[in-house]
Computed example of a mutant assay.
Amino acid sequence: MAVLSEGMCPGLDEVLLRGLRAADVKTVEDLVSSDIEELARKCSVSYKALFAIRRVLLAQHTAFPVSGADLYEELLSSTAIISTGNPSLDKVLDSGLYTGEITELSGGPGSGKSQVCFGVAVHISYQLKQSVIFIDTTGGLTARRLLQMLQTETSNKEEQMEALQRIHIFRLFDVHSLLDCLHSLRSGRLQQASVGSGSVKAVIVDSVSAVIAPLLGGRQNEGMSLMIQVAGTLKTMAKDFNVAALVTNHVTRSGSGEVQPGLGVSWSHIPRTRVLLEQVEKSLVSQSTLRSATLIKSSRQPCHIKEVFDLQWWSRSKEGSSGKRKLEETDS
């Protein structure tokens, strides 16, 4: 229990400390649990000044309780919702990707995880005019593929190039390189990517399991430690820089044969939202581009919400007599 002392944070001087002690407020816990408006009157100090001190102390001593009202105020002031560009997927995600959080797409080979990531990156860079960090750990991302998708958005080559410049690609093939990259982004590279090309609104890692899964299993404690480091760095970066983190994961089968995301129980607590992508068989003759998205973890919506969408949504021509596609257009 930390005792309040002079200089603990800006504004907490000797005069205010005397007033707080007279009001029987002697520790950080006493202060953050008090009615700030009433305490401000007792100490003859402005409400705003005392509220600011309380916020700093809360940040420094996170183990102390914070009220639901404070959490809601922080949510309203800092969280943004970024559309994926696909109405069906947005519905499963409760409107889109939330900044400050990690969203996971899991699925087997051919489920469309990478295609969705490409589509999200193109949508954010072209439609929203914001920047994206795309970390490719499988070698599946090519500038040609992104350009093809952008060509369905606009025939203007200058606009295509501007959108491509807003997608910053890192190719990394081991977990140590991934950690170095994430640490570099946290320590300033993220702001550099924002200069002159829109703010960075999303960090995409496709795939996080490709570099972590080979290190797990058996007695490989180092693999578990590295996984937790990746998770912690991603969560901190998403929160501190108010960006949405989108990661992809492989799937495994449980003892009962049920499909489930990979990387085990420890990783399952990391993403705030988890979506399972699966192929939808259209016929035995033609390969379907339809995919199902099932919500398997969320703090906002009931799980098992399921939507079917077409992977070609991001590759269809959006130009026409009416100009750019409206963001709220639905897939027929």
Score class of each variant (00 low, 15 high):
residue 95 S to G: 04
residue 42 K to M: 09
residue 147 L to H: 12
residue 161 M to R: 15
residue 147 L to Q: 14
residue 82 I to E: 00
residue 49 A to D: 06
residue 82 I to M: 03
residue 102 I to W: 00
residue 86 N to W: 01
residue 162 E to T: 12
residue 121 A to W: 00
residue 148 Q to G: 11
residue 49 A to I: 15
residue 76 L to D: 12
residue 41 R to Q: 11
residue 38 E to D: 14
residue 51 F to I: 13
residue 83 S to W: 01
residue 118 F to C: 05
residue 150 L to K: 11
residue 165 Q to I: 02
residue 132 V to S: 14
residue 115 Q to G: 01
residue 66 V to W: 08
residue 84 T to L: 00
residue 101 E to K: 11
residue 45 V to M: 12
residue 56 V to Y: 07
residue 86 N to R: 02
residue 63 A to S: 14
residue 75 L to P: 02
residue 124 I to M: 01
residue 96 G to F: 04
residue 96 G to V: 00
residue 99 T to R: 07
residue 157 K to P: 10
residue 80 A to E: 12
residue 167 I to S: 05
residue 159 E to P: 03
residue 39 L to R: 06
residue 55 R to V: 10
residue 121 A to I: 07
residue 66 V to D: 09
residue 82 I to F: 07
residue 159 E to C: 09
residue 124 I to Y: 03
residue 59 A to Y: 06
residue 71 L to F: 07
residue 82 I to G: 05
residue 91 K to D: 05
residue 116 V to F: 09
residue 64 F to G: 07
residue 157 K to I: 14
residue 59 A to C: 12
residue 56 V to Q: 04
residue 81 I to A: 05
residue 166 R to P: 07
residue 86 N to V: 00
residue 131 S to W: 03
residue 67 S to M: 11
residue 51 F to S: 12
residue 79 T to S: 06
residue 113 K to L: 05
residue 160 Q to M: 07
residue 50 L to V: 11
residue 107 G to Q: 07
residue 85 G to P: 00
residue 86 N to T: 03
residue 154 T to C: 02
residue 60 Q to C: 12
residue 147 L to C: 12
residue 102 I to D: 08
residue 41 R to M: 08
residue 57 L to W: 09
residue 96 G to Y: 01
residue 135 I to K: 03
residue 39 L to T: 09
residue 164 L to A: 10
residue 135 I to S: 05
residue 104 E to I: 10
residue 123 H to Q: 05
residue 70 D to E: 14
residue 143 A to K: 13
residue 69 A to L: 14
residue 63 A to R: 15
residue 109 P to G: 12
residue 108 G to S: 14
residue 100 G to I: 06
residue 126 Y to Q: 01
residue 43 C to H: 05
residue 96 G to A: 04
residue 108 G to H: 11
residue 125 S to N: 06
residue 106 S to I: 04
residue 94 D to L: 03
residue 160 Q to S: 10
residue 65 P to C: 05
residue 138 T to S: 10
residue 59 A to S: 15
residue 113 K to E: 08
residue 48 K to G: 11
residue 99 T to D: 08
residue 112 G to F: 03
residue 111 S to G: 13
residue 113 K to Y: 08
residue 157 K to N: 14
residue 49 A to W: 09
residue 107 G to E: 06
residue 128 L to D: 07
residue 136 D to S: 06
residue 117 C to K: 04
residue 54 R to Q: 12
residue 54 R to K: 13
residue 88 S to G: 07
residue 112 G to I: 03
residue 155 S to T: 15
residue 73 E to L: 12
residue 82 I to K: 00
residue 138 T to E: 14
residue 159 E to N: 13
residue 134 F to M: 08
residue 167 I to Y: 06
residue 116 V to S: 00
residue 77 S to W: 09
residue 78 S to L: 11
residue 151 Q to F: 08
residue 91 K to A: 05
residue 98 Y to I: 04
residue 119 G to R: 00
residue 155 S to M: 09
residue 66 V to G: 06
residue 157 K to W: 08
residue 49 A to V: 15
residue 155 S to N: 15
residue 105 L to N: 06
residue 69 A to R: 15
residue 67 S to C: 07
residue 164 L to K: 13
residue 89 L to N: 02
